[in-house]
Each structure stands twice: as structure tokens, then as C-alpha cells.
Computed example of a mutant assay.
Amino acid sequence: MPRVSEAHLAARRQQILDAAVRCFVRKGFHQTSMQDVIKEADLSVGAFYRYFKSKNELITAIAGDKISQVTSVLDELLAAEPPPAVPEIIERVLELIDRSVEEDGPVRIAVQVWGEAVHDPEVGALVADVYGRVRSRAVQIAERAQAGGQLHPDADPVGVGVALFGLIQGYILQRILLGNVDRKQYVNGVRALVTG
């Protein structure tokens, strides 16, 4: 029997993840069955379960992919010299969020996952890990901003970073629940808060 290439395995895995995103966005996390995802991916049951054993595994993979995009942007901005202003960093992240909401909707799944994290310890651990990575980078941004004179010397950079992370989550919630958030206006609000 011929060996399956890594590229084929990666493409099949992505096919499943794309199908799961479409199902979760269309029907919601709880209303989507594994059979729904298998049908959407146009695979046999055996082929599907070779890659994922549960909806939680699918959510873990989807969240990991999307959060890695956010952390990559933050890492790039953290490495920039001179460091960009905090509002510009927030705007770059919010642009990524807006594209994800408009393109294929995975950010819409985030709100469902947050709710599930309250009841499911496995999902809760995933959320804590994934969002902990973003929050730690927000703290690094605040530390760097303080070192560069963008924040008051007496400001608590951990507290500022945690608040910045909350502003990103708040934008996601408003974008999903209200739909009519003006990103420029939001960033101007962040700018007013940060610069006093």
C-alpha cells in the first residue's frame, strides 16, 4: 500500500477543520454533531476519526490556528524597532479579528467556546491556555510601552496588559453581538484611555 504524503495528510486535516468551522458557524457548537462535520467534509467516518476524535479536539485545533495568527502578529509587533504605539498594535489585532469575522467566521465560534469553557473542564483548560498566550503578549506590549515612555512610569504594566487583553475580547463580543462596531472609533477610544 503506498504511503500517504505529509502534504496529503495536512490537506485532509485542513479540509476537516474548514468543514467544522462552516458547521459551527451555521448551526452552533452544541447543535453540530460529528456526523454533520463528517458529511460537510465529504469523508468516511474512518477517514474523519483518523484525524479528530471529538468536537473538543476540533475546537482545540481551530482555536489554536486562529490564536497563532494573533500571536504571530503580536510577536512581529513586539520585535519592531521602534515599538509601535499601543493603539496601533490594538488596531492591527482588531483588523485581523474583522477579517476573520467577515471571511469565514471562526471568531464567531470564540463566543460559543467561551460559554462552553464555563461547563467543560477540557474546553476551559484550552481557553485558559490559548488566551493566556495572548494576554501574556499584551502584558509584554504594556511593559515595552512603559519602557519607551508611552505609559506613565508608575503604571502597572501587568494591569495595563490585562486591560488591553480585555479590550480585545470586548471588541470581539461587540462585533459578534452588535455587529456595528466602528474599528477606528474603538481604536481612538483605546488611544484616549492609554494616553490619558
Results as ranks from 00 to 15, higher is better:
Pro2Cys: 09
Pro2Thr: 12
Arg3Phe: 11
Ser5Tyr: 06
Leu9Gln: 14
Ala11Asn: 14
Ala11Glu: 14
Arg12Ile: 04
Arg12Phe: 04
Arg12Thr: 13
Arg12Val: 11
Arg13Tyr: 07
Gln14Phe: 03
Ile16Tyr: 03
Leu17Ile: 04
Leu17His: 02
Ala20Trp: 00
Arg22Cys: 08
Arg26Cys: 10
Lys27Ala: 15
Lys27Thr: 11
Gly28Cys: 14
Phe29Cys: 06
Thr32Gly: 05
Ser33Pro: 10
Met34Gly: 02
Gln35Arg: 10
Ile38Gln: 01
Lys39His: 14
Lys39Gln: 15
Asp42Gly: 11
Val45Ser: 13
Val45Tyr: 08
Gly46Gln: 13
Gly46Cys: 08
Arg50Tyr: 12
Arg50Ser: 10
Lys53Arg: 14
Ser54Leu: 11
Glu57Met: 06
Glu57Lys: 01
Leu58His: 07
Leu58Phe: 06
Ile59Asn: 01
Ile59Val: 11
Gly64Gln: 10
Asp65Asn: 09
Lys66Val: 08
Ile67Tyr: 05
Ser68Thr: 13
Val70Tyr: 07
Ser72Glu: 15
Leu74Arg: 00
Asp75Ala: 12
Leu77Trp: 04
Leu78Gln: 08
Glu81Asn: 08
Pro83Leu: 08
Pro83Glu: 11
Val86Arg: 05
Glu88Asp: 15
Arg92Ala: 13
Arg92Gln: 14
Val93His: 03
Val93Gly: 04
Leu94Ser: 04
Ile97Ala: 04
Asp98Glu: 14
Arg99Gly: 06
Val101Asn: 06
Glu102Tyr: 00
Asp104Leu: 03
Gly105Gln: 08
Gly105Asp: 11
Arg108Asp: 03
Val111Phe: 09
Trp114Thr: 03
Glu116Leu: 10
Asp120Met: 06
Pro121Gly: 07
Val123Glu: 03
Gly124Thr: 03
Leu126Lys: 01
Ala128His: 07
Ala128Leu: 05
Asp129Asn: 11
Val130Phe: 02
Gly132Asn: 14
Gly132Lys: 06
Ala138Lys: 02
Gln140Arg: 15
Gln140Cys: 04
Ile141Lys: 01
Glu143Asp: 11
Ala145Ser: 08
Ala147Arg: 06
Gln150Thr: 01
Gln150Val: 00
Leu151Asn: 03
Asp154Gly: 11
Asp154Asn: 12
Asp156Pro: 09
Asp156Gly: 10
Pro157Val: 11
Pro157Ala: 08
Pro157Lys: 04
Val158Ile: 09
Val158Trp: 02
Gly159Leu: 14
Gly159Met: 12
Gly159Asn: 11
Gly159Thr: 15
Val162Gly: 01
Ala163Ile: 07
Leu164His: 00
Phe165Gly: 10
Gly166Lys: 12
Leu167Pro: 00
Leu167Gly: 08
Ile168Tyr: 06
Ile168Glu: 07
Gly170Glu: 07
Tyr171Ala: 12
Leu173Pro: 01
Leu173Ile: 05
Gln174Pro: 01
Arg175Pro: 04
Ile176Arg: 06
Ile176Phe: 02
Ile176Ala: 03
Leu177Glu: 14
Leu178Gly: 13
Leu178Met: 11
Val181Trp: 02
Asp182Lys: 09
Lys184Trp: 00
Tyr186Glu: 11
Val187Lys: 09
Asn188Cys: 04
Asn188Arg: 15
Arg191Trp: 05
Leu193Lys: 08
Leu193Met: 14
Val194Cys: 01
Thr195Pro: 00
Gly196Ile: 08
Gly196Thr: 09
Gly196Asp: 12
